[in-house]
Design a protein around this nucleic acid. Structure first.
Lengths: 201, 201, 201, 201
DNA sequence: GATGAATGAGCCTTCATTCAT
DNA sequence: TATGAATGAAGGCTCATTCAT
């Protein structure tokens, strides 16, 4: 990788990544050829290889983009006041994102990465790292709820956080397969789970 | 291409599929070459192509096997007595299967299929069909619970069934990525959800 | 090649050759697979290889059949009375054969053999042998005509015989390519050539 | 697949076609593998597939080259003065070409194409188109002869033109099979035919 | 820095042929 | 003798990657 002027470089990288993301979302990693990315970006093979060492690095970079997107979502949803409301805000943000064209496209790539994580260690680390933050945040909120007495002490915050994340991952899958899916339905189900966490009298 | 007698055929098909499943679980669909399947099966290229039109058909057939496995799991878990116990039995069966080597291997393939469903219509149909049955069965149990008064009438059975399936799909993902994961943790989370469905007094 | 009872053997051979001829005429030598011949004949691979050493021998045998057909045609057209009428009879027989479905099918194979003769010595010998007899016969008739004074002595019988055969070969080509082609047209052209051979006064 | 600049492309295309022509003339279409063309050209598989979609397109292009060669031959032979001399010039040009190494090589390919025309429609069109021009030109000359009174009005120009072409096609066949064949012999035969066309007194 | 023509290892697939039953 | 399942060498083609300009 030759060293380029940082600004130009960053701009080109983004250009390439945007093209790659479009291709990946449309055709998947393995069905996408470098030629596709070249056509989509309007650049040349040499140029792409000037910025990325190869297809794998391109996938890796796309994975980082996704990681960042999820982190941003989470940050935006952060609502420190009430623990339960904080959980609801996160849920709502995630579900809303899934209804936007942009969000869906990003999830299509996510699913590719989930599968890829099975055999590419770098991607597995990326994926599990990406999932760690929401889990930690949710677990914290749950602990907050336990401290303030609204959530049952018997609940294991980490397990429950993982379960909630699992739920949303499943929602993503079903949504991507084209199953009819409304945000309110999902929120209602989430509320049921929340009510199951309430302190027993 | 050669016309084979049904009996001979079935045996070889299974042999080939077993080899293919091993390869697919280990390396994924796209990283697996026909040469890999040949090596794994100990058969020849021509023999494989005598039974399957190509790699795609092999993937398709593997998908059907998985479909069948899930159906069998579900049937085995069927416990007609109490609705809530029925749900618990299904959850337990699914979670137990995920702890077995065999079950895990099968899930690795499932994840591949989930991703593949994004661009292969035949596989998408297979995957969504495969998910329809558990959803229907769970929804039925939930309705049974509503009829017998142990589950809140306000719950939408279909949505909740979908949510439960989503939860398990997410568990599968996390398990496959190597996250520490105990059946009892997951069952506890499931119980919390169940308690959230209970009729409010 | 195992030794079979001569009658059965001959019958099977013919069965196989008939199937092969049908395939070859339809698809050409190279586009025809042994599997095609198997399907067309209703026999098995092993059976075919019991009678023919391989595809090449099959082609060779088909070539001999064609050779024989032409020879039969020629014999039938033989009309010893008048030399010029003898030539006309041969021409008419050849042209008539080209109008029959059966004759056309055989010519399709002939054209394949003509091309094959370029690189297969055995076939080249077959083809040139097959052409030698008509040339010899025509040359004889021409010489007869020269002796009886109806044909110009300046004519080289062999060259002219070759030319006449060439003409018919060309007719075959054009007929096979689907060019409109009537027997009477061709006969008229042949008559013009004949009149060009007449003794100059 | 790569988009090439027209100039670069044309040069490489010719290089590839030259190599392909050499292989095809030597071994025939079906016996020639892409590997042969690669070896002959000194290029790589990828390069060849960058210029031609596949073997079929290569054959097609070779067919066009041949077409062009014949057209050039015809144009060069065009001698507008006397109709009969025009016909002689064409005959002589065609026969002379058959004696040159280059011409022979080209005819070997022609014969392949003639056979291929039986099952490939694109090639059949190419071949019949290629034959249409000489026929038309010869028919015109014959009509000219009829107008100027040197050729019998009873002759059908088109049929006779087709016959002459057929004759030369047959000459080509025999020449390719290695039959002894002198230009003067063939010209003498052609003269005989011409004299058969002369106006009857 | 960018270009794009060229590379070539490797993939999927076909099909003539064999051989145990 | 016939069967037909199995073989495996070989062919056509793709595509990630390189490098001279």
């Amino acid at each position: 990788m030759p060293k380029l002027r940082p600004e130009t470089m960053a701009a080109r990288r983004d250009e390439i990544l945007a093209a790659a993301a479009a291709c990946f979302a449309r055709q998947g990693f393995h069905q996408t050829t470098i030629a596709d990315v070249i056509a989509e970006s309007g650049l040349s093979a040499g140029c792409i290889y000037g910025h990325f060492a190869g297809k794998d690095e391109l996938i890796q970079a796309i994975g980082e983009q996704r990681h960042a997107r999820d982190a941003a979502l989470l940050t935006a949803a952060r609502d420190s006041s009430d623990p339960l409301d904080g959980l609801r805000a996160i849920a709502r943000a995630a579900l809303a994102d899934m209804q936007k064209e942009d969000g869906l496209r990003s999830r299509r790539i996510a699913l590719q990465l989930w599968a890829e994580a099975l055999r590419d260690d770098a991607i597995r680390v990326q994926v599990t790292e990406g999932v760690r933050r929401p889990i930690a945040l949710i677990a914290e909120l749950l602990q907050g709820g336990q401290r303030s007495g609204v959530i049952d002490r018997a609940i294991n915050p980490r397990s429950m956080a993982r379960t909630m994340v699992a739920m949303f991952q499943g929602f993503v899958l079903q949504r991507l397969w084209g199953e009819p899916f409304s945000t309110s339905e999902a929120m209602a189900a989430f509320e049921a789970l929340l009510s199951g966490l309430a302190t027993r009298r």
